[in-house]
Simulated assay, not measured.
Amino acid sequence: MRSVLVLFGSESDEYIYTDILEYLKPNFKVNFKVLSVHRDSSKILELLKEDDFDFVLAGAGLGAALPGFCAAHTEKPVFGIPVPNCFGGLDAFLSIIQMPFEVPVGALSPKSISSLSSLLDEVDSKKSRVVNIVLSPDIENHEYANQEYSLLADYALTLGIEIKRSSSVDEELMNIILVHTDDSHKVSNNALYVPLLTKSEKNSPAFSIRLLNLIDYGGVWFGVNSPRNALKFLNKLL
Rank of each mutant, 00 (worst) to 15 (best):
R2S: 15
E162N: 12
H73S: 03
V187R: 06
Y149L: 14
A60H: 01
V130I: 11
S125C: 05
L7D: 02
E162F: 04
P195F: 11
K76L: 09
E148L: 08
V194M: 08
T74E: 12
F79S: 06
G59M: 05
V220C: 12
L21R: 10
V103W: 09
N229K: 10
V78D: 01
V220Y: 13
A58Y: 03
T18N: 15
P227N: 12
S128Y: 06
A230R: 12
D154I: 05
D138C: 07
E46A: 08
Y23I: 03
F207L: 08
S168R: 15
D124H: 03
N141C: 02
F93S: 01
Y193K: 15
P77D: 09
V224E: 07
S208Y: 02
A156N: 11
S117T: 13
L173Y: 14
L196V: 13
K29G: 01
V30D: 11
S208L: 05
P195S: 15
V83A: 03
I44C: 02
L231A: 04
V123M: 11
I113Y: 08
E50L: 05
E46D: 13
Y217R: 04
A58D: 01
S128G: 05
L197C: 11
T158G: 04
K202L: 05
D216S: 12
M1R: 14
P67L: 11
T158Q: 14
D154N: 11
P100K: 00
I20D: 10
G223E: 12
I133T: 11
A65D: 09
G219Q: 15
L66V: 06
L237Y: 01
F69R: 00
I81C: 02
S136G: 08
F53M: 09
L116W: 05
A64G: 00
D13P: 03
D52A: 08
L62E: 04
K236H: 05
S41A: 13
K76D: 08
L212E: 00
L35Q: 10
L45W: 01
K33F: 11
E122R: 14
V134Y: 09
I16E: 01
I163H: 07
P110N: 04
S125V: 06
W221C: 00
I163T: 13
L116Q: 10
G223Q: 08
G218D: 08
G219N: 15
L47A: 03
I44S: 01
D51Q: 03
D40V: 05
S117D: 14
V78N: 02
K111F: 12
K199G: 00
G63P: 01
K127F: 05
R210E: 02
N213C: 14
L178G: 02
R39W: 10
F87H: 07
S184V: 11
N85R: 13
I215F: 11
